[in-house]
Design a binder for these strands. Structure first.
Lengths: 194, 194
DNA sequence: TTTTATGTACCAAACGATTGGTAGATTATT
DNA sequence: AATAATCTACCAATCGTTTGGTACATAAAA
């Protein structure tokens, strides 16, 4: 058996970086092959199709967020506020430096009417995120308010990331995070005084 | 035939509706021709290239928003709060029913690294929107705060539209608008008591 | 230990289909 | 007859995918 040039993780990471800058339809198999140091045809030793590759990339990314980022919200060694802070910090890293956070949104919008399989994964990512935030807000708000707050918090962060990208203003997300953290602290204070 | 089948406006509207559902790279000249009741070759009687067509669509859309929607903010026959309300209402119509509002975002993200000409138009749309909002907030906030508020308001609305689309939840934007309007009223009240 | 067999990894080339775009003939209107 | 709009036919290039064949590392057989 010949040694493979690539392990699965490298393949996915290389492919992600291409998809990220060119989008789904904008990326050709040739582009992907080049990024992986292969010829176009050889790619099909690793994958079944372009679509299945993208689906795997999306799924891996989603799973990564859920298990490595969102899980911070349930770390009982920390106070709720500290957990939120950790999450915000990680989000900033992801969106600003790794530039990988809005990827799911971009692809979701681009392929909404053409590849339902993508939409499903992306949708579940946001549901997970919202649920995570809802849990954290449940410490300072009642059920219904926590849900609403969580939904808008995610929308707000996504909106900030979006404007950050479109207007090339890196500070957008940071300021949003600061605002959300301050607000949370205020909610905690109100809760205590009740 | 001396008479063209299409006037410019119809051409742009038909093309927009295709670009909207399939994106830029996902739309072929054949798709565009079909939507306009023409064969592919005939399209080139109207346009120079696919890219120039899209650019015209984007520009027309942007100009429409600026002259027909954003200008409400400067309608001196109305109180500032009423102007904001008008804007919010129009925004809801546009984003929910015409489904045309997030188009600029979608295309902006899809082509960010490949077609700079698009990016420029889209960027200027958001700058105009932010400036419009900044003007309205300047009635109840000082210069710096108005600017910040305007930036986040636009991000918030865009985020809501985004989540609305990705999660198929039509209420998102409406609730965001209600929240923003209530907040504005509160800011007005605070201003008066100062 | 050497030989043989097997399966993996990859390349080079080509597949049919589709891409954005062009040229020239045809049609309809003035 | 002149003009403008449209169709038909085609181009070169690229698309995602499949092919036939080769290099090579391992496993089994001698």
């Amino acid at each position: 058996m010949a040694k493979p040039k690539l392990d699965r993780k490298t393949l996915l990471r290389n492919s992600l970086s291409v998809f990220k800058t060119m989008g789904y339809n904008g990326t050709s198999m040739n582009d992907l092959a080049k990024a992986n140091g292969l010829l176009k045809g050889s790619m099909y030793h690793y994958i079944e199709s372009k679509e299945s590759l993208m689906l795997e990339v999306l799924t891996a990314l989603k799973d990564h967020y859920v298990s490595r980022v969102f899980n911070k919200a349930f770390d009982e060694t920390l106070q709720p506020y500290q957990r939120l802070k950790e999450l915000a910090l990680r989000a900033e890293e992801i969106f600003v430096f790794e530039e990988g956070g809005d990827f799911l949104v971009n692809i979701g919008l681009e392929t909404k009417n053409s590849v339902p399989a993508f939409t499903q994964v992306i949708k579940s990512f946001f549901q997970e995120w919202i649920n995570t935030m809802k849990y954290l807000y449940s410490f300072v708000l009642d059920e219904a308010d926590a849900k609403e707050k969580a939904e808008f918090m995610v929308a707000e962060i996504e909106g900030s990331v979006l404007m950050m990208k479109l207007l090339d203003d890196v500070n957008y997300l940071h300021r949003t995070n600061e605002r959300l953290l301050k607000e949370y602290k205020e909610l905690e204070r109100q809760k205590v005084y009740k």
